[in-house]
Amino acid sequence: MSTMLTVDNLKVTFPTRTGAIEAVRGVSFTLGRERLGIVGESGSGKSQTGRAIMGLTPAHAKITAKTLNFDGIDLLSAPAKARRALRGSRIAMILQDPKYSLNPVMSIGRQIVETLRTHENVGKREARDRAIAMLEAVQIRDAARVFDLHPHEVSGGMGQRAMIAMMLIAGPELLIADEPTSALDVTVQLDVLRILDELVAERGMGLIFISHDLRLVSSFCDRVIVMYAGKIVEELAATDLGNARHPYTQGLLNCMPTLGTSRHPLPVLDRQPEWAL
């Protein structure tokens, strides 16, 4: 398997009045055409890792890395114009909540067409046809009607499917999905995940799936990275979750109440200061 993305010793630091906050403190991994999960609690640095790869870190933050390489391109030294050309066309990102991440004053179809025509030289007619075909690929029935709707006129599940369509229309090689189903209803989550899973497999994309839900990530991905306080504490194959060695990973697995197990009180994480070292 060829390596598409290499991240070596990535650090993201935010300067604040009370001193620098290190959100990501030396994260390293490589990614081929596979599904990689990044799991951790809020504040563990998982989203900032994804954003640094995408190039969406706020301007005042400082990014350093020994290597941050996507398909031979050094992302750290690449000029803004080159990064912009990558974003959306070769690397795409799905965000958590379609309510906030779609443009509220633009129809869904126009937003998809805009993405496509930014990255490819296609005519209006063809762009529209491709957008509708893409909406059909994410299993939106009556795609021609949804094309003309605005984001507030569709449900959360449909909005998220529209976002997946928008992100995949330019045929990216790497997809970063940051909590793509957390804002959705439980009954809709599975549909959206299934669509995402099929499209990723069909198109042979690399996927970074960021989530706080360890079980979900392990059922969806090939490999899982567990982050705590800006660092990777454990990396394991998804099938190997039962053999997790780090107490933090074990704690995350145990603390969820599940159907059919009666544990009162629930085990809680006993956070050790040395985990954050």
Binding site: E41, G251, C255, M256, P257, L266, P267, V268
Partner: peptide, 13 residues
């Protein structure tokens, strides 16, 4: 978060 959820559920119980 899941780990914090466990703490709050225990407290409620």
């Amino acid at each position: 978060d899941a780990s914090v959820q466990a703490e709050v559920l225990n407290l409620l119980e």
